[in-house]
Nucleic acid binder design. Structure first.
Lengths: 232, 232
DNA sequence: CCATAAACTTGATGCAGGTCAAACTTCGCC
DNA sequence: GGCGAAGTTTGACCTGCATCAAGTTTATGG
């Protein structure tokens, strides 16, 4: 986009650092600011009737709640920091004004939205088509692929959160991980060791249309993170 | 958008009528055409490992698989007609070219994508936060609201498909509907009769952030249809 | 380095919802 | 209008996963 327009956005926006566990956004609130994670990580979650579930974890550098800002509609998800996190906030009205003025910016918005949409669809497919054991297995395998196929890595998030993201209870995740030891993967604490990739793959049946990656991916950045310091 | 540009798109595209049950799109295929339902209805579904689930039903007038076209990526979902359906097909390359040339068109694309994104997020929240009984109850209630709060209406889709959309088996849907008779709604065949709205509402706990509608909604049109002849 | 809380694990138990099988009903079609 | 196929319902059964209740390990902070 035009440098002048970019500068204008920067001027209107500001950057702030938040402590861990801080609620940045309450679901249902009007979309005041587009948020961009510069550093750290943010959990997006849904709430309903005293229940809560993790929808995604946003890693740098990535926007979140873009769609709400664009439609000037209430946030569908809440957001809280998972660690000390630096975030840039751009007034939603400036975002809406800017993609009317700057064609390049509009294109970037389109691409980001399309990527986000596909990301949620993938996640929804995984939830509806796989059982929890298969979801865990494919998650573990995917994390390995994202780290260039290493056989060992550490989980990027707490198991409690991972369980919620995968649509299961922490207890069930714990048990599932134990039973997966017979299927090619061992998890000790946050350490994952793939002992038999072929076997784990046979069980997980990873699918490009669920587990990605998207061919021309620009910077999806929504979903559980590839690694602690991942770009998306 | 500019009339000349609009005409150019129309020239490149064509309209075709398909019989019921025809597979329009196979998931994983390259995104050749943006599809627009002009008449009839189309099911979007996901497949994995010999399993299948309904993701959405598209009613006129609405686009589908826009995101795949934009990213020039493979379709994440398959699509089939549910009845005799008239569809406009616009070459994906023309769509991509057009929103680069025409700012107004780009804005329309942004709005459509944002609406679609929010639609999937709502659906994902419903799946993760509600049990099947609650999903059925809120679905029945929502259909009533969409038909301006009538106490009686006919289901817009087959129960088999509805079950899949709601993430349950047809058997379980059938049983759930039976047990809901004690909670303010009776379903006879495809006929829904709300006998005690307050009671059903207490059970369904409908939520604006899951069941909509989106405040400034333009034409979301993805999800199960409000009615057979609905605009969305 | 210890105290406390939080996260994680393990076990026992129960139920929501899936599966299988068999009827019954509805619908499209000749 | 009757036949076959598909959709729907019902019943019996079972299992995957949630829940509840301890325990154990791991972080956090003074």
């Amino acid at each position: 986009m035009a440098q002048a327009h970019f500068d204008a956005l920067l001027t209107a926006s500001y950057v702030q650092t938040f402590p861990p566990g801080l609620e940045l956004i309450r679901q249902g609130d009007p979309a005041d600011f587009l948020h961009i994670v510069l550093d750290g990580s943010v959990e997006l979650f849904g709430q309903w009737a005293d229940r809560e579930c993790t929808m995604a974890v946003v890693q740098p550098v990535s926007t979140f709640i873009l769609a709400a800002c664009i439609r000037d509609a209430p946030y569908l998800m809440g957001a809280r920091t998972l660690e000390r996190t630096r975030i840039m906030l751009i007034p939603a009205s400036d975002v809406r004004a800017m993609f009317r003025r700057d064609g390049e910016f509009a294109l970037a918005v389109i691409d980001e939205l399309a990527a986000s949409y596909r990301s949620v669809v993938r996640s929804a497919k995984s939830m509806k088509l796989r059982n929890s054991r298969e979801r865990v297995a494919s998650y573990l395998l995917r994390q390995s692929s994202l780290a260039e196929g290493v056989a060992s890595y550490t989980l990027p998030v707490e198991k409690r959160l991972l369980a919620s993201y995968l649509g299961m209870t922490p207890e069930n995740l714990s048990r599932t991980l134990r039973t997966l030891e017979g299927d090619g993967v061992k998890v000790i604490g946050a350490r994952v060791i793939i002992t038999d990739r072929a076997r784990l793959t046979a069980l997980a049946r990873p699918d490009r249309l669920i587990d990605g990656p998207d061919p021309v991916a620009t910077s999806a950045g929504v979903g559980l993170p590839p690694s602690r310091d991942g770009g998306g």
